[in-house]
Design a protein around this nucleic acid. Structure first.
Lengths: 244, 244
DNA sequence: CCAGCTAGG
DNA sequence: CCCTAGCTG
């Protein structure tokens, strides 16, 4: 990929042979690093062309990046979590996902202008609630980050039970923080549900990803995907998660 | 006092009218700050002249400070927990306390050359075990500090039951750390036993103590005194602690 | 010896 | 966006 780090598509992408299944990618596009930014946006679009995910969660978008996407990925509807600085966004494959409503949930005490971007949508007559966020960064902001996780989990559990809820993004979460907050019983961590495969554990990994000049080795699972299935008749593959 | 901060005599000093009781002071003399050091050592000696404590626990001694004390506080026997850099020490009033044996207990994993200075002594035919330490400094070293507290507590509980055990010093402990380690049932925190009086809670207090140029307010109870009474016929006033 | 910040690896 | 060291209030 031409994309610069953090390059971490955390994907719950089923086989393309089975069009009944929803596919999803989350990607921090590192828009704060303007080096080769358009080239990297092109890289993202190439990826979308090849894999055609139904839903894309994006973080660290900046206005020119969004502009580029809107011009070059016309098969997707793009919604944004902000207008200035950097913000999150979502891309919904027009032919597969229909947007009903979008809204932005504030994090009351963020110092980094972070929020929760929520989209109500349908996918093959199934109700979806799609949510992404770029949660408070850095180790020292664990308290704020846990507050944000609580906001997210409240939203996930509050959703009507005929809705499949998917939250994903750059959470900056550490395992200890998730443990302290505690996941609701109805919510599962998709990477865990899929067998905790070691080779896709770390989503920020300066060991395997050398495209950013970071000399030290860092390995963290910052990008996470959580699922609260609909109680019945949910999206195929998203009640009991299976890996192709 | 001419002493510079940290100026925190945490005292279990009974009325001098009752000579049957043991009196004790613990003091971090801040020997790492060499400004006015001899003047401050003189201040300590003045304090000793006035209050004549039977036992003095000292932390952050440096060699010239000890030299000064040995020359100017001849009524005390002085023992040291080290020879180089900074270290702890003990002063025992020759007329009241008899040293039987001293030894230095290492902290296996300290990175700051800290240790536990132990003195076996007698006071009016009662057996005493006196211990002092300057435990690992700074918030970030909580784990090491808790290890050191465990070493101390092990020593306190292991002592024969005809011995009155007193540990005191600059522990750098936070309440949460003590709670995590847990105190043995036979050991009590002397400040707590004496009623948790608020005006003597903080032993490092840049609010009430302005002799060190620290602009920000800090209040911590770093200096603590623990007692494990002898099971019977212990030192008067040190089985059930009373405040004059 | 605190907390917050910054710069460098 | 890691961690540590160094500086500052």
């Amino acid at each position: 990929m031409a994309q610069k780090a953090p390059q971490r598509p955390s994907s719950a992408k089923p086989s393309r042979e089975d069009d009944s299944k929803l596919s999803l990618v989350s990607w921090n596009v590192d828009g704060l690093d303007i080096e080769n930014l358009i080239e990297r946006a092109w890289g993202l679009c190439s990826y979308l062309d090849i894999y055609t995910p139904d839903v894309v969660f994006l973080q660290e978008l900046i206005p020119p990046y969004v502009q580029y996407l809107k011009k070059n990925a016309v098969s997707y509807l793009i919604i944004e979590g902000g207008k200035e600085g950097y913000f999150t966004g979502m891309m919904l494959k027009r032919s597969r996902v229909e947007l009903l409503e979008k809204n932005i949930v504030p994090y009351p005490t963020t110092t980094m202008l972070r929020n929760l971007l929520v989209a109500q949508a349908t996918f093959k007559d199934h109700k979806l609630c799609l949510m992404t966020s770029h949660m408070e960064s850095c180790k020292g902001h664990a308290e704020e980050r846990m507050k944000q996780l609580r906001v997210v989990m409240q939203r996930m559990t509050d959703a009507p039970d005929d809705v499949t809820v998917l939250f994903g993004g750059d959470t900056n979460l550490r395992d200890t923080e998730v443990a302290e907050v505690g996941l609701p019983s109805t919510v599962s961590d998709v990477w865990e549900s899929l067998g905790k495969r070691e080779h896709v554990r770390y989503t920020w990994d300066t060991k395997s990803n050398t495209n950013k000049e970071i000399s030290h080795v860092c390995q963290f699972r910052f990008d996470r995907l959580y699922l609260r299935p609909a109680s019945k008749e949910g999206v195929p593959g998203l009640s009991r998660i299976t890996w192709p």
